[in-house]
Design a protein around this nucleic acid. Structure first.
Lengths: 182, 182
DNA sequence: TCTTTAATTGCAACTTGTTGCATAAAGGCA
DNA sequence: TGCCTTTATGCAACAAGTTGCAATTAAAGA
């Protein structure tokens, strides 16, 4: 479970409120560690109880807005965790199950729906990543931290492109099989 | 949640017991939809209650072994589900969080451990997939069902190769940064 | 001023998956 | 026969994530 460390990382980059964190997650760390605001609030409570962050009320804001910042103990914990090693996350993909089911059913069962839907989603996501690449990482010298962030983005770019290739290949094969079999 | 449909698919390919299913999952469907035997037993109970499979006691076997097979209603349900469309699974990868944390901490915090560990795992997995490719899909004509199964395997091959490329690239960048910064 | 709207924080129930352990039945062997 | 091992099935507690909604506070508008 990496949520606490994802939060520490994000707060280290920029102290802010729970709601701000949730918004930032949607367009940066959330690409590879999604989290809802409910998860984030609960976890911020634990981080504060553990003495890794502290919060202060913010005056003149709507609601009971509080600003969180990382304490030295939190930075220490983050360093400790970064040096650990995980197993790669097991992949779990319903579309592959569908393809296999289509093979077992032995007929035009309709996986194409899912393939086309995925294709559209991956193209959208790729376009988003390419925008970020253009805007943030192109045409200038990058600091060490920025080079690492760019590396992460490149992983996203490569993954989306691979997914697109796969969907196209699968659709082509299904068409070939349909023509041959019907 | 695709576990019920993954089980229906596997049972359609070959009726068998819960334990056999668990073993087969480990080296086929489980590559893209992992499941433990506890999950499988619980789900088989639900499938039987829904009238999608039926089971019969197997005589002369250890334990209370039962053989499960798909009923017509189950096959119908599988067909219905295959034609549905999902969103792609959100990826959630602690190593990316670590890379970003390393960037935020701004020092040699030690992500290399995780990168090297991943690299080894992905190489092992790739070798396994390549073995399966050699053994099951090379040097002969493939049926339509086999062509689809091969397609799925190729997705695994491409994913592992992409992961390996990424780890190597990340390690190279970290070394460059260390030399430049130190 | 009073009501409405928006922003922020938070609770609670539900689903899914994991982990560790328990039970049942058969085979092997002293 | 009695005990240990193996195979098969299953329960229970826990961990993590999702969904829907509630409560609090301030800004904006009538």
């Amino acid at each position: 479970m990496s949520l606490p460390h994802a939060l520490l990382t994000s707060l280290l980059e920029q102290p802010c409120s729970g709601m701000d964190l949730a918004r930032r997650f949607e367009r940066s760390i959330g690409f590879f560690w999604p989290a809802t605001h409910q998860q984030i609030y609960k976890e911020l409570g634990k981080l504060e109880a553990a003495g890794w962050v502290r919060s202060s009320a913010e005056e003149g804001a709507r609601g009971r807005k509080r600003c969180y910042e990382v304490l030295p103990a939190g930075e220490q914990e983050l360093k400790r965790w970064v040096a650990e090693a995980d197993d790669p996350p097991p992949l779990r993909d319903a579309m592959m199950v569908r393809l296999r089911a289509e093979a077992a059913l032995g007929t035009g069962a309709g996986v194409e729906n899912d393939l086309l839907h995925r294709l559209a989603r991956h193209r959208t996501q790729l376009a988003l990543y390419e925008d970020i690449e253009q805007r943030d990482f192109t045409g200038r010298e990058l600091s060490a931290a920025e080079q690492l962030q760019y590396l992460i983005l490149q992983s996203g770019l490569a993954t989306e492109r691979e997914q697109i290739r796969f969907c196209e290949k699968a659709l082509a094969l299904l068409e070939t099989l349909a023509n041959a079999g019907g």
